[in-house]
Amino acid sequence: MKSAARMLDRMAGLLGTVAMAAAAVILAIATGHILLEIFLRNVFATSTYAVDEVVGYGVGSMTVLAMAGTLRRGEMIRVQLVLARLSPSARRVAEIMCALVTLLPVFLLTRTFVLSTMRSFREHTVSTGLLEVPLWIPEAIFAFGLGLLALQLAAYALRLAVDPDAPIAVADVATE
């Protein structure tokens, strides 16, 4: 059980790192696209006619792809008023509760995004811009990012429950 929990946790961590790298690439592409747009407009009085769509979906995708990794590294902020005052064992229970209660809406959202992706794919729904982006693409990225977050939360809760050496993946701040 313990080794299974550790493996699940390691897998979530690995996938989270990969997704985070993808998010950084998306950020760089968005920057490049805006710079290209500025260049085209000022030098050739033309445009890519797609910058708001590409950058809009890019920022959204970047955010969801980075969620699991950001949470794992303890950079998702929280109120520590109660948490920081708990004994180590109580803290462990509280962390498990936090992860599980967060898992509920995240799982619900993942499921909805999966369903929506399938519908957009089936019905060939596209964005209203010139680029006509098939909507299932950004929706699938959202489903993947949120699914990864759900996996990370589940792995975190499971490992805390069965593995006494599991670290609490929250960068602790000064006691409130």
Binding site: A45, S47, V51, D52, G129, L130
Partner: peptide
């Protein structure tokens, strides 16, 4: 404000711009 306008004004030699 939409694709139609962009296509139409590009054809007329104008510089249609996409500005939010």
């Amino acid at each position: 404000y939409d694709v139609n306008g962009t296509i139409t004004f590009k054809n007329l030699g104008a510089a249609p711009l996409q500005v939010s």
